Every structure is written in C-alpha cells, then in structure tokens.
Simulated scan of single mutants.
Amino acid sequence: MASEPKMSRAAKRAAKKAETDPTKMSRRRQIVETYRMSKQGDPRIGLWMAAMFVVGALVGGAIFYLIPAGSGTFNLVISIIGALLFGLLAMMITFSRRAQRAAFARLEGQPGAGARALSMLRRGWKIDEVVGFTKQQDMVHRVVGPPGIVLVGEGNPNRLKALMVSERRKHERVAADTPIHEVIVGNEDGQVRLPKLTRHVQKLGRQVKPAEITDVLNRLKALDAQRPKVPLPRGPVPTSMKGMRGNMRGR
C-alpha cells in the first residue's frame, strides 16, 4: 500500500493557524473556545449560566402560563416553550457578560491590551494599532470615527505624556480641522479602565460626518507612510474578544 504524502511545513503551519484563528472557526467552535477560556478565569461561569437558565425558565413559564390562550394542554405546551426560550436567553446573556469580563481580566496589564479591546468597536470605526511607541512598550493606538481622531495610550503615564503630545502634533499637521481626543488606559484617576474603553470612545459623540471621515483617512495615509510598522504583541484570548465583538454586533 502506498504511503500517504507527508504534509509540508507550510501546510502544517496553515492548518495550525486555522485551528486557533477565530475567523476560521465555526460559530459553535468559537462559543466552545470562548467558554473554555472564560472558565479558566471564571470557574463559576457554568454555575451562573445554569442558575440564570432556571430563573429565566421560571419567569418565562409563568408569563406564558398566565396568558389565557386556550385549553389547559395548550397553555402547558406554550409555557414549556416560553420557559425554554426565556431560560436560554438569560443563560446566553449571562455567558456573554461573564465571558467578556473574564477576557478583559486576562488582557489587563499586557502590551496591546487596549488595541484588543478597541477591536470590539463596530463598523464605521478605523483602528490603527501602535501608531506611536517607546522602547519600554508604551504605545499609542489611533481610532478614527464619528468623534474624529481618538489617540489611545497605554503604558507608563509619565512616558506617555511626551508620546501623546508628539502624536497629537503629528496628527494636527495633517488634520488640523478634525477634533482630536486623547485617552489613557489604566486604573488611575483621569484614566479609562480597559473594560470601559470601548464604551468611553463611543460616548465621545458625533463630531465628524462619514464623508469627512473618508477625507481624514486619506490625509492620515501620508503620515502613516513615514512611520515604521511595529507588530503588536498578540494577547492570549483572541477567541474571546472575537466572540464578544460578535455578540455586540448581534451575530
């Protein structure tokens, strides 16, 4: 019998990447991986999901049973269906929130955590990772969207001051008429905690129209062409963050 052809190294690398790349996974696989990784940081997530399923089922069953919809048998069937729907909904909401919390807990303190959190922004936002950096791994990310330009810094606050000033001046030279916001990720006064970063950026308001955003992006291309590209250190929970972004989009 002829032996099977050996898989090349490139094919093996591609296969291994497909196994860990969230974009290559099925929806079911993403949920399983998200649950597995969330359980490492939140061992009680399964108990909370089960408890909320029971609570949701009781509420849903009671609501549908009290609605006069026909005979006793029909009401019982409708009550069971309502209990299952409410229970599953409560369980998935609990899973989404606790998994998101566990994902942020794993990311905090790691280089590039801010960029991983910003990846949860919906369509209409352009995220550029590490547009500015220091040798000590302090970095500035850029978000372009309805508020204008948002510079997000993470690292040592003292070193970030000079870095943020430098980046702001560079962006003002090519987009002087565009509002520029500065955000520092951290747990100290005046900083924004990682779990609240995305919401904070979204609450900066709508100060730039979609057509103006396109013009701003075109202007920033000239600025970006002059700076070296720095690979962003990847966090250990890309699957969880991808899953959370999907949940925020309602997919």
Rank of each mutant, 00 (worst) to 15 (best):
P68M: 06
M91W: 00
F74L: 02
A90Q: 08
M92S: 12
M92T: 13
N75M: 09
L58T: 13
L85T: 05
A102D: 11
L76Q: 13
M91Y: 00
S71V: 04
A102I: 08
L76N: 00
S71A: 13
L58W: 15
A90L: 15
P68Y: 05
G72S: 15
F95T: 02
G72L: 12
A102E: 01
I78H: 00
G70V: 03
G72C: 12
I81L: 12
F95V: 05
G70L: 10
A99S: 15
T73D: 02
F104S: 00
N75D: 07
L85I: 07
Q100G: 14
L89E: 09
R98W: 05
F64H: 03
T94K: 11
A99D: 10
S79N: 00
M91A: 03
L76G: 06
L85Q: 13
F64C: 09
L88A: 15
F64V: 02
F74P: 01
A103V: 02
T94N: 04
G60D: 09
L66P: 02
F74M: 03
A69F: 00
G60E: 10
A103D: 06
V59T: 12
L66A: 11
L88D: 05
T73L: 02
Y65V: 03
F64K: 09
I80W: 10
R98D: 11
I63L: 10
G60W: 04
P68Q: 06
A83P: 06
L89I: 04
T94R: 14
L58Y: 15
F95H: 10
L85A: 15
T94E: 14
S96N: 15
T94G: 09
A62G: 14
L88I: 05
L66G: 10
P68C: 13
A90N: 01
S79E: 01
S79R: 00
L85G: 07
F74Y: 08
G61A: 15
S71P: 09
L88H: 13
L85S: 13
G60T: 09
M91S: 13
I78S: 12
L89H: 08
I93S: 09
I81N: 03
